[in-house]
Design a protein around this nucleic acid. Sequence first.
DNA 1: GCTGAAAGCCCAAGGTT
DNA 2: AACCTTGGGCTTTCAGC
Lengths: 158, 158
Amino acid sequence: MSQNSLDEIDRGILHLLQHDARNTTTTEMGEAVGVSASTVGNRLQRLEDEGIVKGYHPQIDYHEAAFPLRVLFVCTAPIPEREELAERVLETNGVVSVKEIMAGVENIHVEAVARNRNDVVAVGRSLDDVGLDVVNEMLVKDEHVQPFDHFGDEATDE
Amino acid sequence: MSQNSLDEIDRGILHLLQHDARNTTTTEMGEAVGVSASTVGNRLQRLEDEGIVKGYHPQIDYHEAAFPLRVLFVCTAPIPEREELAERVLETNGVVSVKEIMAGVENIHVEAVARNRNDVVAVGRSLDDVGLDVVNEMLVKDEHVQPFDHFGDEATDE
DNA sequence: GCTGAAAGCCCAAGGTT
DNA sequence: AACCTTGGGCTTTCAGC
């Protein structure tokens, strides 16, 4: 399917996108990595087609918005159904991420945002309805995300 | 600091950005939510200034790229130092997210991507060096991210 | 596979209601 | 607070190498 062949140029493009995926132009990226703007456009197209870049999303501070609560549900799912359940849970209102863990009892981690305690209860109930066994439920105080900025620092000129 | 007053327009903008933060123009968003393109620009500026929108990042399939391993380290940190340690850990090469949990023994969850087992060992050592007690270490099979698309479906025309 | 130029579209700024 | 117009810049496409 994919060749996994990222060269210096690809890594440079990814690196720059991770810094600001909305306002970084192909022209800027071209100058930084040493190719023309249209080449950057073509590379980006290929990265998207191969599924390496799956989309572009804003990083939203839910706490500052309208969702002050962030909850992590640690669950158990029967291995055969795990993948299907994970997909299903993602549809639940408020859920922002679902992690499938390779092995162990706590093999699905579900994270959700909520406006109040009622929302939290509702999410918990949904998980139960779907067939997940909720082992633990924790309040997340804060989450720091690093868009993995170690992608090829050396490939850019800046 | 922030008014937390997101109206229909703001929610519509966020909703559309979550779908595609790079290729959705202010013009398109304006048409969708029923205001002019410049108004969308102003709103977006305000959302960024208030810290509700903290940035724009590509969603990268690390597995398809060059980092086939994804590992979750569940750790314990002394409460007083937790926040500082979390910040420090985020600097570690390979780490993509750090979650501070409100209470309990497993109060810091660190997620990292790696090219091979050596990378994994290196990250574990870094966590130890910083002063975190690694309680558990799990291989992540798959992660599904939902950019929380429930932000105001009703505010758009599409 | 990369480049360069042209066409079309978009964004930012200022002035207006 | 939202709109309109204009100038500058960006993306895309395609011929050419």
